[in-house]
Design a protein around this nucleic acid. Structure first.
Lengths: 161, 161
DNA sequence: TAATACGTTCAGTACATACTGAACGTTAGA
DNA sequence: TCTAACGTTCAGTATGTACTGAACGTATTA
């Protein structure tokens, strides 16, 4: 057998992650945990993905900061267990939104530093800042809308049990 | 003098571009042309930014593909002139949207390849594809909304003349 | 107190790619 | 035809960083 759908999924998310400017392994870990559907140990992840524990350690904490995975501890075990959050990819949007917000703030500061006699140069700079700020808000609202859907579907799931 | 507001703007857009995973120079060129407010030659850009003509050539064509700048030719001159489009940064959104769409298509294909007895693994994969597709549409609609604003303000500008 | 299992840290490498300099093809003018 | 100015291409480099392996600290068992 050449490659299972699972392998393909892991590989693809790795490449997407790389294209986004994040480490390839972080995408692979996300895919792995999404498929696992349960919390996995660092050692297990490292072995199955065939990468070093050091990389998994670094990247799994990166994913934690980004709100894509959570660390769990199980009673009686000293191991850290890692679980993918229900819809891990909303954080992509939040991350983008925050980056846009930072861009807006930076560019605003620059716009403000233009002397009064260079209004025609300041204006396009301010416009760019506005673009980033508005787009950041827009992304945020979309991320929130998705989070809302999660809450609904999750509470539905609970009531189904 | 240490650094003019113009320099700072160019430098900052370079760093933002780099953080987005694009060449730093492409951001610098964008900033330069936005500030210039008119079409500039490749040689002029290279000299002012103090980078090689080779880099400018490569990156300015990249920006052209992305819809951030346009090439102009002036009668009687063999030079290519380059001009920043009115609101060059909508293309950021379109680019993102297209990337998301590609991601969705790829992941859908993988989801379809899961055998019937692994429905529980296929589902989160499909969900991710849906996320990318919906977000792509969302970004597209926002980009279009901005383009709409441009058309309005541009026609207003025209009527003001 | 050893010995083992765990996660983290850190120095070193391996690799991808942005950027340069030089050579090239093309066009316009002398 | 020669020369000069332009943009592009391409091989080589320089640089940033993802990833590894080994050493470390800590906590649990014996």
């Amino acid at each position: 057998m050449t490659q299972t759908p699972e392998d393909k999924f892991i590989e693809t998310l790795g490449l997407i992650s790389q294209a986004d400017g994040s480490p390839r392994i972080s995408g692979q870990i996300t895919a792995y945990l999404v498929l696992a559907g349960e919390a996995c140990s660092l050692t297990q992840i490292a072995e199955d993905l065939d990468v070093s524990k050091a990389s998994v350690s670094t990247n799994v904490r990166l994913l934690e900061v980004r709100g894509i995975v959570v660390r769990e501890s199980r009673k009686g075990s000293r191991q850290d267990l890692w679980r993918a959050l229900p819809r891990p990819h909303q954080s992509i949007l939040s991350t983008m939104s925050e980056r846009f917000k930072r861009n807006a703030a930076q560019i605003d500061e620059i716009a403000a530093s233009f002397p009064a006699d260079k209004e025609h140069k300041r204006e396009p700079v301010s416009e760019l800042a506005d673009f980033y700020r508005q787009s950041a808000d827009f992304l945020k609202s979309w991320a929130d809308a998705l989070a809302q859907n999660d809450t609904i579907s999750m509470s539905k799931d609970v009531s189904d049990e």
